[in-house]
């Protein structure tokens, strides 16, 4: 539920800044983090958290230095971390079933310690979001004008990407590494189709997210399906539905 609340809040800024793929990249990075955690016998959520935050700072640095394109930075991190994860996993064979849960998400893997970590992270994310909400909106809309108005755009960019990293780490146990990006991006993209004001778009994305996660958990529990997959499919169904309703109205 916490994840359902936070993901669209971060998602709206990522999607509007054309950063959708960052969520995907960071989720692959988190896989490397999980592999490290499993390899060293530390709580994988913690190691995933550390690696995604470090990687997000690295990505932002590379992008900001303009030495390479933003997408190239993402590709580097995406493939690099996946490679690291695979190598680590091939080194140690004992944890395949556990890894499967992290890949695709399963409520069952969530330990008590995880719950505390997630709750703590969520508080940080929400606090930062509230503190920098206006700045994030302005920078997302028009970075140059925001800078001229005295907003420290570089700081805001770093905060956004670190928040994305935190959110990805939060979402791992629920939907799994492979589907995090969907959770962050799909509700926002669906809400954007409604063409409403910024606030209304955020609220719509929240409603879609909550509904999908809640119904996904219930449906997957009773039908014994994968939780993450069910949630994402429900989100996609809503997206398609919205598109269909829209095209019927406007043609």
């Amino acid at each position: 539920m916490i994840v359902a609340f936070i993901a669209p809040l971060i998602g709206i800024f990522l999607v509007l800044r054309r950063y959708s793929l960052i969520a995907d990249t960071l989720s692959h990075v988190s896989l490397a983090g999980i592999a490290i955690g499993l390899f060293l016998g530390i709580n994988p959520v913690l190691t995933a958290l550390a690696t995604t935050v470090l990687a997000s700072l690295g990505i932002e640095r590379l992008r900001d230095s303009k030495k390479i394109y933003g997408e190239s930075a993402l590709a580097l991190f995406l493939s690099g971390s996946l490679a690291l994860a695979i190598v680590l996993l091939s080194l140690a064979h004992g944890f395949n079933t556990n890894l499967f849960n992290y890949l695709f998400g399963s409520i069952i893997t969530v330990t008590e310690q995880d719950v505390y970590v997630i709750a703590f992270l969520a508080v940080i994310v929400v606090t930062l979001l509230l503190a920098f909400y206006k700045e994030l909106v302005y920078v997302t809309f028009d970075e140059e004008a925001a800078q001229v108005s005295g907003i420290r755009t570089r700081l805001v960019n770093i905060i956004l990407i670190v928040l994305a990293a935190l959110t990805v780490s939060l979402a791992i146990p629920i939907v799994g590494v492979l589907l995090i990006a969907a959770l962050i991006v799909i509700p926002v993209v669906t809400a954007l189709q409604l063409r409403k004001s910024f606030i209304q778009t955020v609220v719509s994305a929240e409603i879609i997210s909550f509904f999908s996660v809640l119904s996904g958990i219930i449906v997957s529990f009773y039908l014994n399906l994968s939780t993450g997959g069910t949630i994402v499919l429900i989100m996609l169904a809503i997206f398609v539905l919205v598109l269909m309703v829209k095209s019927r109205w406007f043609t």
């Binding site: 206006k134 700045e135 809309f141 028009d142 004008a145 925001a146 409403k196 004001s197 910024f198 778009t201």
Partner: peptide, 23 residues
Amino acid sequence: AGFPATVEEVVLMGRYAKRGLFA
């Protein structure tokens, strides 16, 4: 052009610089 912001919201951004965090 797809940015979801009303005219009012866009103009309000011009006020942001004067306000602190959480404002």
